[in-house]
Design a protein around this nucleic acid. Structure first.
Lengths: 214, 214
DNA sequence: GTTTTACAACATAGCATGTTTTGTAAAGTT
DNA sequence: AACTTTACAAAACATGCTATGTTGTAAAAC
């Protein structure tokens, strides 16, 4: 019935401008939500408020993201993604001093976890507070898996002679320690990082130095 | 005014029987609460129900423990204490195989955390569930500190040649890892324990073998 | 392509109600 | 002397009702 349209979806092949405009719209909406989230918890932010803040009608919001839940998921994923990138950047690309690199990444994480409201919502299950974004955090499983996965890649890419399994073990341990210190802080982020690095240093030394594995 | 009573409090110096009777009463009440807690969350258990279950009047309960909150705290503390004892027993007293000993303790903890309802209330902040016992868990800080402290003592007492600071670092790491795996389980307790032991083994080897510290 | 207007379904906040539970006190029982 | 029974005020909680706000969808207007 349709004459000229190819067999793919409408949104897949689009002229660059339209694609860019669409992305801009979505980003603006997510940004608007982020701004509102600074003042009020998710449960108190209406779709109307988000649209209005972005200078757009409520209907446009619903056209872009199907529902309130979908929008929340997109928002949470974008935030988690940005966050992991920040940590990866803090680790850097220099393989010469692994301990210092991991320490940096750890501190960046804990500092952000203290300030960034979104991260607080993901990491800490605040009972009397926000809840609602835990739609997708309900069990933090997905986030932990994503973070472990990306950190494993990062470690493997920098210290190429490390065993893959060792990298994964280390990554998961780091992520769990990071989440633990974020939700139950000891003293300062720097001191927490020192403790964790002291605890894991022997493992790292062994994994990096000991490449005589089977 | 008082003739023969010495200057100390009434409850401090008491004849053995009376002291024992009092302890028995308190334990019976705490046991009754534990039994009820198997079927319903704390918020749904009334003081009347606890007293009745223990075969005692409500007034006696209030005479022993001043209020509902106080009772909850005593209950939670007793449970935490028992729990730590169980873990310490699992670790044992044999200094010959530290890795296996810690693995045992870890598995015992995770198994109990899965089953024991009380531990679940302490460790995991279940949003849609029980809440109320988090009066004293609100921030798990106290529990984490107690557990870290006792585990440090345990480690130091078995492996006497280990550095005190190392013992504490290890203890806190173990506790945080245990809580992390209890609230976000990976696969099975045994596999979680294997991962953690693998990660911390190098640190343990260094701390125990390397007693040439300053 | 976006906005406006409209609307049904659902969720939320407030309120008046009756019931339960807490915490305390005094009198009765063994 | 310790426990139970009875009694009671204050607070917490459940219930049913109404009013208001929000979500999600659709159609007409710009």
């Amino acid at each position: 019935m349709e004459a000229s349209a190819p067999a793919s979806t409408v949104s897949t092949n689009r002229r660059p401008y339209q694609q860019a405009a669409r992305d801009l719209l979505r980003e603006s909406l997510l940004d608007a939500a982020a701004e509102l989230m600074a003042d009020a918890p998710w449960s108190e932010i209406s779709m109307a408020a988000i649209a209005s803040r972005a200078g757009v009608s409520r209907q446009t919001l619903y056209n872009e993201f199907g529902s309130r839940d979908e929008f929340a998921q997109h928002y949470a994923l974008r935030e988690a993604d940005r966050f992991l990138t920040t940590v990866e950047d803090a680790i850097g690309d220099d393989p010469s001093d692994p301990l210092q690199a991991l320490r940096e990444g750890f501190i960046v994480f804990l500092d952000a976890a203290e300030n960034n409201p979104m991260v607080r919502h993901i990491v800490v299950r605040d009972p009397g507070a926000d809840e609602l974004l835990s739609l997708f955090t309900t069990r933090g499983g997905p986030v932990l898996e994503l973070a472990t996965y990306r950190l494993t890649l990062k470690i493997s890419s920098i210290w190429t002679d490390a065993d893959e399994a060792d990298a994964r073990t280390l990554a998961e341990g780091l992520v769990r320690m990071a989440i633990s210190h974020a939700s139950l802080p000891g003293t300062s982020p720097a001191r927490s990082a020192d403790h964790v690095v002291a605890l894991l240093a022997p493992f790292i030394a062994q994994a990096l130095g000991d490449s005589s594995n089977h």
